[in-house]
Design a protein around this nucleic acid. Structure first.
Lengths: 154, 154
DNA sequence: GGAAAATAGTTACAATTGCAACAAATAATA
DNA sequence: TATTATTTGTTGCAATTGTAACTATTTTCC
C-alpha cells in the first residue's frame, strides 16, 4: 500500500513561482500603468519592436510568449496611442510590419531604466553567485517546463 | 545626458519568471482539471486544509496568497462538490471553519503524488546544488519582492 | 447599554483573458 | 486556372478575475 504523503504548499516550487511572479508582475505593471499608461502586454510588444523593428504580429507573439489575440489587442491599443506604426507588407498583404514610432521610442527610453532599476532592486540581496545560479536555473527550467508541459502544443 | 539603453526581454528576470510560471501553471492546472476537476485555487485551498484543518476563509487566504474573493469562490465550489465541509465557529458566528471531507481527503491523496511527480520532473535536469540555489534564491526574492512591491498593502 | 467602527464572508458589476469562429489574402494542387 | 487548404490578424462570446459595495456579526468606547 502506498505511503500517504502531504504537500507543504510553501515548499512546492510551482506554487512559489506563481506567488513570486504575481508579486513581481503586479509591482511592475503598477509602475508601468501609473507612469506610462502601459499594460504589460503593450510593454512587451514595445520591447521586442525596439530590439527588432518591422516584425509581424505573429513574430511578436512568438518572441514575447504571448498568444496572437493578446498581441492583436496590444497592437490595437499601441496604434491608437500612436506608439507604434503599422504598414502592410508589400510581399504578403496579410502581414503587417510593426515598429515603434518616434513617440514610442521616447516612451521606451523612459521605461527601460525603470524596468532595469526594478530588476536591480529585486536582485539586490542576492550575491553574484546566486544571480548566476538563478539565471542558469531559470533557463534550464524554462526548457524543461516547455518539454514536459507542452501546454498548447496540440 | 543619460545613456540610451535597450532591454533584452529574454534576459529580464520579471519577464522570464512570468513565462516560466505561466508554463508551469498551465501544465499543472491542465493535469488537475483533467484528472480531478480541480482548479488551482481549489487545489490550494485543499492543500492548506490538509495541513491544517479548521481554518477560516481569511486564514486560508493568508496562507495561500489568494485574496478573499478567490477563496470564497473556491470554497463555494468545493462545498458543492462535497470535498470540504464548513461549520460556523461557535465563538464568532461570522467565521466559518473549513476542513476536508473524507471524499476531499481521498482526492487530496490522489493529487499529491501527481503534484510531486511534476515537480520532480521539472527539477530533474538540475543538480542538487542548483536546487538548493533555486530554493534559497526564491525564498530571498519572495522576501525582497514583498518589500519593494507592496502591491496591495495600501 | 447603545452607537459607531471594524471584521468575515458574499455578491454584483466591470475589466481581462482565452477560445472559437471569422474575413482577407496567399499557397497548393488538381 | 479554378478549387481547396493554409495563414494572418480581428472580433464575438464565454469564462475568469478583480474591485467595490453589501450583509451579518462582533468589537470598541462613550
Amino acid at each position: 500500500m502506498a505511503k500517504a504523503t502531504t504537500l507543504e504548499l510553501d515548499r512546492f516550487l510551482p506554487y512559489r513561482l506563481s506567488v513570486l511572479s504575481n508579486i513581481v508582475s503586479t509591482a511592475i505593471s503598477g509602475a508601468y500603468e501609473k507612469r506610462f499608461g502601459l499594460t504589460i502586454p503593450e510593454w512587451r510588444v514595445m520591447a521586442v519592436l525596439a530590439m527588432t523593428p518591422d516584425l509581424s504580429a505573429a513574430e511578436v507573439a512568438q518572441r514575447t510568449a504571448m498568444d496572437k489575440v493578446a498581441v492583436s489587442r496590444a497592437v490595437a491599443s499601441l496604434l491608437k496611442e500612436r506608439r507604434i506604426v503599422r504598414k502592410t507588407a508589400r510581399a504578403d498583404r496579410r502581414r503587417s510590419l510593426l515598429r515603434l514610432s518616434s513617440a514610442g521610442r521616447r516612451v521606451y527610453a523612459q521605461v527601460v531604466p525603470v524596468a532595469l532599476d526594478y530588476e536591480r532592486d529585486l536582485l539586490a540581496p542576492l550575491t553574484q553567485k546566486d544571480r548566476e545560479a538563478v539565471d542558469r536555473a531559470v533557463r534550464i527550467l524554462l526548457g524543461r517546463a516547455a518539454e514536459i508541459g507542452p501546454a498548447h502544443t496540440a
